[in-house]
């Protein structure tokens, strides 16, 4: 088992190195200095700025220094857009905000969609199942943007007119647990609505597979109640695909939701990252994608190891 883990880690190192390099190379296709200089800048100004930002060095040495700072967890590099603020401070500011949005959304989506999927799978082919599947497909066909715009309009704007005082914030953010519902509950609900269609369909397919298994027939034959079959027998057996799906979405919790954060003015990671990309703020983009890729690869390895624990055949490959 130990050898298996080590092998997996070694196998993923080149992938990690490539992700960091790919991101650096992509960012440098466009000249970042031009965007930060005035119209009357001379060639000498450009050169000076390049030296100041460390862009005059060859790509390889920039790459090595970036890798060095990531592997030593040194995020003290200054960001380009706000002088005096380090990348680490920016991260510490925005990641908790994103987590406050994505974590409740993931929990709520998963619980709700598993319950609906089980009901749907148990009534397979009947009108209830068909209606649920129909709504899932319908929900998947509407653009994310439309959910956000109308969610904001109905939930924040119309509701405020109706009740007379603001129930949910339209735009803006304040930290603190007492402010959570005001600023983040509406985005969480929108996010859950969007994800429900996809998740329900996936879990339904998993459950349908399980309803045909022999152990369900056995459980029925020995007289177990419907509830017990659904929540004890079936759910436990469907746990592996469920865990896999959740594991894969874990790294994305940190990225937050670019669109939701932009609409509601929530200063989470997605919003910070999008602003950084659009303004050519390399330190933020590079460090952040490097961290995300690290988390992604760790979760891949963890999933592989979990598989190997459950299924000894995997280890042989």
């Amino acid at each position: 088992m130990f050898a298996f883990t080590i092998r997996k880690i070694i196998y993923n190192i080149p992938i990690y190195l490539a992700v960091v390099l790919l991101m650096m190379a992509l960012l440098r296709i466009r000249d970042p200095v031009a965007g930060q200089m005035g119209k009357n800048a001379t060639a000498a100004d450009f050169a000076a700025k390049r030296v100041e930002l460390g862009l005059n060095e060859p790509l390889l040495s920039q790459y090595v220094s970036l890798l060095g700072s990531i592997f030593t967890f040194d995020f003290s590099r200054e960001i380009w857009l706000e002088p005096g603020v380090s990348v680490g401070e920016k991260l510490a500011e925005s990641v908790p905000v994103s987590l406050a949005l994505t974590l409740p959304a993931l929990c709520l989506t998963t619980v709700l969609s598993i319950v609906i999927a089980m009901v749907s799978a148990f009534n397979r082919g009947r009108w209830l199942d068909r209606t649920l599947v129909f709504f899932a497909v319908l929900g998947m066909s509407i653009s994310f943007l439309v959910y956000i715009i109308f969610g904001q309009y109905l939930g924040a704007f119309k509701l405020q007119q109706l009740v007379g005082h603001p129930v949910f914030s339209i735009h803006g953010y304040e930290s603190g647990i007492q402010n959570w519902a005001f600023y983040l509950l509406l985005p969480v609900l929108i996010s859950v609505t969007v994800a429900m269609g996809y998740d329900t369909r996936f879990y339904r397919a998993v459950m349908v597979e399980e309803t045909e298994a022999d152990y369900i027939t056995t459980a029925r034959a020995k007289g177990a109640s419907q509830m017990k079959i659904m929540f004890v027998h079936m759910l436990r057996n469907a746990m592996i695909p469920i865990i896999t799906r959740i594991m894969i979405t874990l790294p994305f919790l940190v990225t937050g939701s670019i669109l939701l954060e932009q609409f509601f003015g929530i200063p989470g990671m997605g919003y910070t990252l999008l602003t950084a990309i659009q303004n050519g703020d390399f330190p933020v983009v590079e460090v952040f994608t490097a961290i995300f890729a690290g988390l992604f690869i760790v979760s891949l390895i963890a999933t592989d190891i979990l598989y190997a624990l459950f299924d000894p055949r995997v280890r042989l490959q």
């Binding site: 993923n12 991101m23 992509l26 960012l27 670019i258 995300f292």
Partner: peptide, 23 residues
């Protein structure tokens, strides 16, 4: 290796970065 590399970057972030770079 190539496809794991590309999928290790969040899809929307990769799209935004590429669109930014080539715009």
């Amino acid at each position: 290796w190539i496809y794991t590399t590309f999928s290790s970057i969040p899809n929307l972030v990769l799209l935004v970065v590429i669109a930014y770079a080539f715009t």
